[in-house]
Nucleic acid binder design. Sequence first.
RNA 1: GCCCGGGUGGCGGAAUUGGUAGACGCGCUGGAUUCAAAAUCCAGUGUCUUCGGACGUGCGGGUUCGAUUCCCGCCCCGGGUACCA
Length: 939
Amino acid sequence: MHLQFLYIIMEYNFQEIEANWRKFWAENKTFAAKDHSDLPKYYVLDMFPYPSGAGLHVGHPLGYIASDIFARYKRAQGFNVLHPMGYDSFGLPAEQYAIQTGQHPRITTEQNVARYRDQLDKIGFSFDWDREVRTSSPDYYKWTQWIFKQLFNSYYDVTQDKAVSISALIAEFEAKGNANVNATTDYEGTFTAAEWNAYSEKEKEARLQEYRLAFLADSWVNWCPALGTVLANDEIVNGKSERGNHTVEQKLMRQWSMRIKAYAERLLTGLEGIDWTDSLKDIQRNWIGKSIGASVTFTVDGGVSGADPRVIEVFTTRPDTIFGVSFMVLAPEHPFVDEITTDEYKTEVENYKASASLKSERDRQADVKNISGQFTGAYAIHPFSGEKVQIWIGDYVLASYGTGAVMAVPCGDQRDWDFAKHFGIEIINIFEDVDIAEAAYTEKEGKIANSDFLSGLTVKKAMKRAIHEIETRGFGKGKTNYRLRDAVFSRQRYWGEPFPVYFKDDLPYLVEDDQLAITLPDVDKYLPTEEGEPPLARATDEAWGDQLQGDRMDYNTMPGWAGSSWYFLRYMDPHNENEFVSKEKVEYWNNVDLYIGGSEHATGHLLYSRFWTKFLYDMGYIPFDEPFKKLINQGMILGRSSFVYRTEDTNQFVTNSKKKEFKTTPIHVDISLVENDILDIEAFKNSREEYANAEFILEDDGTYICGHEVEKMSKSKYNVQTPDELVEKFGADTLRMYEMFLGPLEQSKPWDTQGINGVHNFLRKVWKLVHDRNGNIIVTEGEPTKDALKTLHKTIKKVGDDLDRFSFNTGVSNFMICVNELTDQKCNNKSIIEQLVVLLSSYAPHICEELWVKLGHEAGTVGTQPFPTFNADHLIEANHKYPVSFNGKMRFMLELPTTLSKDEIEKEVLAHETAQKWLDGNDPKKVIVVPGKIVNVVI
RNA sequence: GCCCGGGUGGCGGAAUUGGUAGACGCGCUGGAUUCAAAAUCCAGUGUCUUCGGACGUGCGGGUUCGAUUCCCGCCCCGGGUACCA
């Protein structure tokens, strides 16, 4: 017994080895990144986690392991690597917990961070922990507030195509009014310098708010009564809140917003220069939703009694089809509807509006197939033909997109076609030689007909000509529309960044820089006030202390994406008290070379951080305008749930193969009670009181076999695998390699612990290359064999190539092949094993550090060894084994010298007896010889 | 509907430029070792087979001496998005 225990220790005592090296790395700050270095820099970043109470499961570290291997690889290649980690520590779960328990979210967050840190440390990451950031720390959010101030103090100058200080705009207003101003704004009117200078302070500020990049506006927001807060569009899934699945309604509120629309075009074109997957770029492109076309005005016939004639503006992507317009449709909510409706149609229109408003956005979408609408009795004048066209209202036109009105071209748009057919409206065909009897013609090809000056032109030319005519005749202008909306930036929550804003006479004023950070005041409860004010309104004057200014502080807090939009910059200079990042450091580290994280952030974090980066670039604070050069989305690791089958209304469980004989309900069973699908019946009985007296119908061999299913890992499915227990059982090196071995990084794949033994055995084999059974070092000095050199260099090449293309799974395979071959060769040669250890150290750092020392080197230096150099000479072979095919089917192998010419190879092959057999006396029609590859004989 | 991915043994997956399909690992089968079990080691493992071979990468076609790989048409799965004018 005692001997056996010793024997195991001698073999590969990963627990002791890993604990020692973790301590060594921490004490020696082995992975500290140097801010000043002659080496080229490389920045490897993970999306920092929100520290939730549930801790990490095996899916979380997948990306961290990949990025860590890559960071270590880059160090070996001679780069000065920045590889930091931190916490996105503001967020709703800690606040919800505070509401339930009264515990301050700061305490909850600190506890969770400690737990995360402990879990992360166990996996042996090479993070530079001295650079840790937490978005909820005042040292950090001081600068989030500072960036907000910069946004508040800026507007977007369209002519210069960049953000500019608002003081330049004020100077222009004072000197010349807004006549020459070309800025992104919601303001459409004009004023002179004299008018501006006569404005009251309140009026001036109201006007400026319409230009600022961070601004206050009454906006329709997604209000979630259950959470007592506003949600961003991407925090809503299918009309319900992403967190908690609560109902969301529309509400008009005074909110902070970010004028991200100003950056729509640059966010789009910037995608071209960065190495992200096509699918992710597509998601962002769709989200920004650029459409090119024209805005065209139609005048309402006869006007409105006692007022100027109403002019309806529409947006169209097909100005070339303008002669196909046979009616117009307004959204039921369009402001002109009541004015233009004739007395004759008043009742019908009112009824239609009422029924449309009852339908929620969701109902409308679900009801796409049903065509509905109502004629208003009014007509508009076609700008070119002068014909009268009917004006309808219909709920297929959305008030929130474009101008809330469309010019309907039934021959060229399927929805318009359906609408016209349904209501028997005329369909004008303006396409040459196209039949539109059955459906609209939506292709952008062919020629336009029946269209005055556009007739005979191709669609492409007609578009240009149409826009030209529209502009010269004053009916409108070429225009580009974006689906992207400005982002609401305030939340009625407690656990977020307070705004550096106070109000005086209801006007917002910024807190001075030297008074930042405005820290969170304590409150008695983490809920909205009785009057529906945010939780910060509960803070007493004492709680605010000397931070209190003006009539009151801003009671909102910033959304989750505020802190995460710039955190990658703070890692470069985490302790700087005077700047968010120093110029010198941001110029050295520059943007992120490799960013790894989930694709669920495609339209949130990844868009907002690009926006802020472009803004900070415009203001001259940073030298780049894209934050993440290369992005990899790691796939999800799915859980493998186990099921037992209970027969209905009993306490009797049926084994998997017999469950069909009964009426059963599948019940999730904790995966820790199951091994290789076999249920530990005693443990199951003990797991819950209700199972104590359970009865079982077993397999014929007396076991209970569980069913299984692959699904998302979650507590409620009892399929969560934590990394901790695996590190305990197999070691961090095994876990790291196994997670990589599961499959391609980007792919979703099921978690299955069965295979982990294979990887663990691999590491034991590595250990055995250096040790005998008693733990003695057995490496030999001297020249390595040719075979060993070939094995090593083949591996150097493959592992290096695999790393360069982020194929971590095949890298692990290649290590296994290498070690299998060296074991077969009985190779214990020191020079070979040393290089293997250096190569392997990025994947399995603990064991490699240990072996490196045992091979006689200084502790902690394996990571700084240069990546082994590949030498192709070792792979040169005298012979090549040719697969010989007949008509493309492989028939036999033939080993031939690599020096042979094509003709000589052909001769040798045809002379071979097996070839003669397949030829069966016939002459080959053709023989294809690819030297060094294959031979194919065609008969 | 539209836009992206993907479909290969019992399972996870490999095949990087059109050149031996199934590397590597798991699982399974048989054997060695053991009082026994675990662990370890060895051999086998795509399907069918009359043991010659035939078939085989979602389905149907095509290009090619040769196709998992390229082209055309379809089916299924995953993700994104949607009366976006």
